[in-house]
Design a protein around this nucleic acid. Sequence first.
DNA 1: GTCTATAGCTAGATAGAC
DNA 2: GTCTATCTAGCTATAGAC
Lengths: 187, 187
Amino acid sequence: MRPQKVLDIEILTGLAKVFRSKGYEGASLKDLSEAAGLKKASLYHRFPNGKQEMADAVLNHISDWVDENIFSNLLDNDLTPENRLKKGLAGVRMLYDGGKEICIFRALSMQAGIELFEEQVKNGMNVWITNFKKLGLAFNLSHDEAENRAIQVLIELQGSLIVAKGLGELTVFENTLQKIENKYLRD
Amino acid sequence: MRPQKVLDIEILTGLAKVFRSKGYEGASLKDLSEAAGLKKASLYHRFPNGKQEMADAVLNHISDWVDENIFSNLLDNDLTPENRLKKGLAGVRMLYDGGKEICIFRALSMQAGIELFEEQVKNGMNVWITNFKKLGLAFNLSHDEAENRAIQVLIELQGSLIVAKGLGELTVFENTLQKIENKYLRD
DNA sequence: GTCTATAGCTAGATAGAC
DNA sequence: GTCTATCTAGCTATAGAC
């Protein structure tokens, strides 16, 4: 076989960039192939089921990144709760590039995607809540408090991304990260 | 002239529904014409500049609704600050149908919309912040506190809409409305 | 595995009858 | 003002050479 011209990771990175900025319907095969560095037909060779398979692959790729760079920190028993929190939030900051990038779930769950990715969005959110809840328990919060705070973290992250993007003020996102950190450290 | 078959308000309501659920690119002229109750060519008679003009009209229509049903309450000098808040939040609850509906700005600002509606989204958010800030001042908050709380309100509303929609749990949105109300009333 | 070329379709938008 | 019929451009996807 001939060697791959472009590595899988490079393709996924390119595809992710387009899906995140344009959404599912908004991302054309032309956009996707240019960002991936492969012609359309070659993309179909890698993803025989087309655009949907590309979006799935991107979701899985990002999901793996989040596991490795955020959740693994939140749950790391070798760290103090304070350091789990700090390293976890550092991962969050990186995931969203300081507020410049949008949440891939949100980008893909609009439009036709509503039914297409509904289940994955729901599961994805529940995993975030579960893991932040475990962090809350490590801070000696009650089950209810830990769960409510986990949900609140999700709300504030998503909300601040929208507002930061809308206003063009990245500080809104950064302030929210600080606020979340302080809230856990204070009680 | 022949009478209009469908009233402007009915058209706008139909168009809004499609744009809110599918976004700008995701909303096809077929979808839009069916929801409006007019054939494509007739829609173009009403909106000669096409889809973009339809989206603009929807944005203006909703903006008027928000002025009348939310902001006018927040700024009503005949009411106590408590009642301004309660009536304003009641409008917010109605605007988003208890968490079932998505923010039109968000729906339209994805995809190709990024440059198309960027200015309108920014202005729209700033108006929300300005008006909630005035409410905060009526509650005797300092300028800084009033502004920060206004931004926080926007963040929590947008975030809770996303999380409520993603989890399929409308209570997330309702709880956030309660939390916002309590926060103002407490201090 | 990657490419050029193209099929088949649907999108947004118009023409012109009534 | 609304309709049917139609145009063109762009879309997703495929065929087949190398």
